[in-house]
């Protein structure tokens, strides 16, 4: 078991944004986290990545309790993430953006230089523009690729993807799904938060559904999506349409 969350709770004042969520992820799995808007998916991801400290519960990585560790420590332990709204470093070039992950996030290894990691990550996401381009000149899709390259350059063992596919066209969706599978094939375990069901069905082996901070279902995507509770959470009465 590479990752386990046990009864994770996160309160904002009186609001329980994440309420008692537990699940575990196997090594090499692509695990989906879905739920309606405001269900607490990103908050949960923040609790895992160290951006927020959970109020209760434990987060276990490789059998080690890592609850409440700082984001920079989590990164060194092998957890990388992308952001829901891609947030690179606007006045750094594409190359420098990725370099940040390669230099500060990756474990020290004399065989692989930071430059190798940068090259590899940018090639891997097939970054389309010159590496000298300042990040502030990129469009939303390019920013997502850049954010992914930055996260990959720190050579993670667990990758958290927060709505990577939001705002992409159908063609781009296929590409990103391919990319996600290829990342997994490199031995990286992935947890993705996503709204687009096509992506969830296309790549995830198991998913958890969260509603109002609580886990309402867990299992294979097709089973879960036919679960009446899930359908109700999303649409009230109707079935989910894809």
């Amino acid at each position: 078991m590479i990752f386990e969350a046990e009864n994770v709770v996160k309160n904002f004042g009186g609001l329980k944004a994440v309420d008692n969520i537990s699940f575990s992820v196997e090594e090499g799995e692509i695990f989906g986290l879905i739920g309606p808007n405001g269900a607490g998916k990103t908050t949960f991801l923040n609790c895992v990545a160290g951006a927020l400290k959970p109020n209760e519960g434990t987060v276990i990585l490789f059998g080690e309790d890592v609850t409440g560790l700082k984001p920079e420590v989590m990164c060194k332990k092998g957890v990388s993430r992308t952001f829901q709204i891609s947030r690179p470093f606007p006045r750094l070039t594409v190359e420098e953006n990725v370099e940040v992950g390669a230099i500060f996030g990756a474990p020290k290894d004399h065989k692989i230089t930071a430059k190798n990691r940068v090259d590899e990550a940018l090639d891997f996401v097939k970054f389309p523009l010159s590496r000298e381009t300042p990040a502030e000149h990129l469009n939303a899709v390019q920013l997502k690729r850049l954010d992914l390259a930055r996260a990959l350059a720190s050579s993670p063992k667990l990758l958290l993807l927060d709505e990577l596919a939001a705002g992409l066209t159908t063609g781009e969706l296929e590409e990103i799904m391919d990319l996600i599978k290829k990342i997994r094939d490199r031995g990286i375990t992935i947890i993705i938060v996503e709204h687009i069901m096509k992506v969830i069905r296309g790549v995830c082996e198991r998913i958890v559904v969260i509603d109002y901070g609580e886990k309402i279902a867990e299992g294979k995507p097709d089973e879960v999506m036919n679960n009446p509770k899930v359908i109700e959470a999303y649409l009230g009465e109707k079935r989910i349409s894809f």
């Binding site: 990545a49 160290g50 951006a51 700082k70 984001p71 920079e72 990164c75 060194k76 990388s80 993430r81 952001f83 947030r87 690179p88 470093f89 606007p90 006045r91 750094l92 420098e96 370099e99 940040v100 992950g101 230099i103 500060f104 996030g105 990756a106 954010d147 930055r150 996260a151 720190s154």
Partner: peptide, 24 residues
Amino acid sequence: SHYGLAFRALGQNIDAARASGINP
């Protein structure tokens, strides 16, 4: 040096910088 890159990363986006392993 690497320090400069860390400074600029922290200055431009502290959350992403920390998520990339920079100790602020």
